[in-house]
Write a protein that binds this DNA or RNA. Structure first.
Lengths: 255, 255
DNA sequence: CGCAGTCTTGAGCGCAATCAACCCTTGTGG
DNA sequence: CCACAAGGGTTGATTGCGCTCAAGACTGCG
């Protein structure tokens, strides 16, 4: 998990063209098929498209491209970002295994943001028109899909709260605790993990500069709240960080 | 539209218990039934619940309440806001006629924010379980519902861009131009309209203080970009404001 | 009239941005 | 081997945007 994944260049071993199988996927309890019985998972398997591998930095889709597929992350990490008229980017989210990409493209039939792999990664293509066909036959799938979209709405509302109301220190604590919880849900350590994104990406996401992120890391380290080595972070006092994220712990200024 | 609506206190005239009818509703080309044919609209009418009237300041639903209904705004305006652990609120949106409320509650089965009427208003109750039943029989309705949810996701991403990247002046220009476009889509003036929300609400939504909003209004007025009288705003130079919102016009500081 | 709520305006400050210098790692090519 | 450059990250000095604090104006309402 912490090492970059090297893909075989032997075409016989390349599974880019292989169809994915939800039933055999380790993420099926987090992803789209969550809660489906075996029969329904099989129906979902029928329509899931091929897998697609991306190298670090490769783009999965681009703003303006016609929308055909949702993508489920099998492994690896992605960032999604918007670019406004004046060319500045705003990262709208970081996605990891089991999470769905592309839902913002359903209205408008075109992708509304860019999605880029932060490391070597793999996704399942989910042709949306086929998924729509399936909704009529598998109500449980439809219900779960609505939950996923709704969850994305609440996630973004939480980011609005973060960007609109919180000081730098609290934003960063929220960010760390959020990553921690998501890794825990996937069976990884909730206290030690690699930051897959650069300091610049973190700053952009949190509405701060790269320098502020660097200073926050240094200060949190000095306070004994975490350990940092390059991009590996260890949370030494998760309870304190959680309190800071919740806003119950007082926030001190940056300088 | 610009005057507060006074409700009759005569019970015989109170239509609170009346069922709503999409086909007869002036908002049906903006709201959930958009694009449906007559037969499908009738099926939708079957499941739409009663109308509900709210006085200014009344709460439609509260965070934590069990989720049963979506609500479509018939007339009036609402604000939705979250409250975090330390008691601070963040307004996540302002809703007007034809817009849907409550989609963030689908995951989790409980409302995730509060919705409060900004003026005397009316909504249609849409029992979500009935709507789900209908999805299987009216694919066009399902497709449009997905577009509405997706649109909400992109709307929030735009707010993230605003809160994360823009200066106060640009945020406020985006806010004004957004209102202008939404009133235009409803057949109202795109240049003169009432701000239904207080300065404080605007500030909260835009991640600014009430004082900053007041100063921005004064400055925009002094620059000749708009006229302000209490809560009535007239955009005198919409092109300039649009350019500011897009970021193509240079941004000057607040002080 | 008083009073409360909303809004405006001014003065000063503080948090995070900006600007700048430097470090470290990685990769390239002589 | 070293020289060099590029990218990512850290740290310090300074600036400035928008917040905070404070006072006062205006409105609506009993």
């Amino acid at each position: 998990m912490t090492q970059p994944i090297s893909f075989s260049s032997d075409p016989a071993l390349n599974i880019n063209a292989l169809k994915a199988s939800c039933s055999a996927c380790s993420m099926h309890q987090l992803c789209l098929p969550m809660g489906l019985d075996d029969a329904d998972i099989n129906r979902l398997d029928q329509i899931i498209g091929r897998r697609r591998r991306l190298l670090a930095g490769e783009r999965l889709y681009q703003m303006g491209e016609p929308f055909r597929n949702l993508y489920a992350v099998r492994f690896g990490h992605f960032k999604t970002y918007q670019i406004n008229a004046s060319g500045e980017q705003q990262i709208t989210g970081f996605q990891m295994a089991g999470e769905l990409l592309g839902m913002d493209a359903i209205s408008g039939d075109r992708h509304h943001c860019d999605a880029v792999a932060l490391e070597d990664s793999e996704v399942c293509e989910i042709p949306f028109s086929h998924l729509e066909d399936l909704f009529g036959h598998v109500p449980a799938l439809l219900r779960h899909f609505h939950r996923i979209m709704s969850q994305e709405i609440t996630r973004e509302q939480n980011v609005m709260l973060l960007l609109g109301n919180m000081r730098a220190e609290q934003r960063f604590a929220v960010f760390l605790i959020n990553l921690s919880a998501r890794y825990a849900a996937r069976g990884y350590s909730s206290t030690t993990f690699q930051l897959r994104m650069s300091r610049e990406d973190i700053g952009n996401y949190l509405g701060l500069t790269i320098e502020s992120i660097s200073r926050l890391l240094s200060r949190f380290k000095k306070q004994g709240w975490l350990k940092v080595d390059k991009r590996e972070v260890t949370l030494l006092d998760p309870a304190h960080l959680k309190a800071m994220a919740a806003g119950t712990e007082q926030c001190s200024p940056m300088a």
